[in-house]
């Protein structure tokens, strides 16, 4: 097939996207597809219309890549593409939608969910700039169960940019200001301690299946943007070590199944299809969902390919399967 691979873009995550896109191109070519790599320049639409690819794969990360912009454009051009629809992307891009989406899914299916998410508050930049919200910073500790430490993060964004662990109210101002660098809305929520995991999912609807969860272990400190870019700063272990979940093997297996179920719930709750990755923390009692990523990274160090490898799948075969369904 002729596959257009979109990569690069203008978001803060451009360099991640270029690396992902390069690997996607190589994998698709290995599977025998004709690949047209494209960046999101002003020539994108004319090029897509002249090249007439049979399907698009977007390796764009961040703004425009995961927020429904590129998906909406491809829907407008009637070019089939791998991954979630524009409207799904608009929901998944903003992490503030997670509690409501889970709540709706629970109500619609009349069932308790395995998935949970940290309790938090989402506030807009203008509330601070124009309405004096900064005068009420001390309320975060009262409003969010457990108080400090708290997590401050942009509502929209990836690669841990603008994410802070805040230990004291004195540090909250700086953390909020940095988070507002990346988005006009910021979430302040419980800081969850536990085993950090990335659960990749392939497929759609009833055919969606979970790949082995990847355990994320920074060698020191947190899973920051810098750590993601530094060789050896993070260990990715797939499948997750049972000992990281529980001392008893049977109990650990049960917890792993619960984690996978929670990830699948989020995947279905948002209506994601083809592929996605759910980032969560097992806090010892629950799977606390952090976010769902509809355009997971595809570099050698990325979580999705790591999970594919752990389940015996080559990235080439996975991507081949994904694009071929649009033949």
């Amino acid at each position: 097939m002729k596959v257009a691979v979109l990569m690069g873009g203008n978001s803060f995550e451009r360099k991640f996207s270029l690396a992902s896109g390069k690997r996607v191109c190589e994998a698709l070519e290995e599977a025998g597809h004709k690949v047209v790599p494209l960046d999101t320049t002003e020539d994108l639409v004319p090029t897509l219309r002249s090249e007439r690819p049979q399907v698009c794969y977007s390796a764009l990360h961040g703004k425009h890549g995961e927020d429904g912009t590129i998906q909406g454009l491809l829907e407008f051009l009637k070019i089939p593409f791998v991954g979630a629809s524009a409207s799904t992307c608009r929901d998944t891009w903003n992490k503030a939608t997670l509690p409501a989406v889970l709540q709706s899914y629970r109500a619609a299916n009349d069932q308790d969910l395995t998935a949970s998410c940290p309790v938090g508050i989402c506030l807009a930049r203008d509330a601070f700039k124009d309405m004096g919200a900064a005068t009420a910073i001390e309320l975060f500790a009262e409003r969010i169960p457990g108080g400090y430490p708290l997590c401050v993060k942009p509502a929209c964004g990836g690669s841990a940019m603008g994410v802070h662990r805040v230990e004291h109210v004195e540090d909250m101002g700086r953390a909020l200001l940095d988070a507002f660098t990346y988005d006009d809305e910021v979430i302040v929520e419980q800081w969850i301690e536990g085993t950090e995991l990335a659960v990749s999912i392939l497929g759609s609807g009833w055919d969606a299946h979970v790949l082995p969860p990847v355990e994320i272990v920074p060698t020191s400190g947190l899973f920051t943007t810098e750590a993601r870019l530094t060789d050896g700063a993070v260990a990715y272990i797939s499948p997750v070590r049972l000992g990281s979940l529980a001392p008893d093997e049977a109990q650990a297996q049960a917890i792993r199944a619960e984690i996978e179920r929670a990830a699948l719930e989020v995947y279905h709750a948002y209506g994601v299809h083809d592929l996605g990755r759910v980032d969560l923390i097992w806090d010892g009692a629950q799977a606390q969902i952090l976010e769902i990523d509809v355009s997971p990274g595809m570099t050698e160090h990325s979580l999705f390919p790591t999970a594919c490898e752990a389940s015996g799948l080559s990235l080439s075969s996975v991507l081949d399967h994904l694009v071929s369904q649009y033949a």
Binding site: R125, F128, K129, D130, G132, A133, A134, T135, I137, M172, G173, R174, L176, L177, F180
Partner: peptide
């Protein structure tokens, strides 16, 4: 600066 001022005036920086 506008955003920063809001935090400064509130004593949050």
């Amino acid at each position: 600066l506008e955003l920063y001022r809001a935090f400064l005036e509130a004593g949050a920086l």
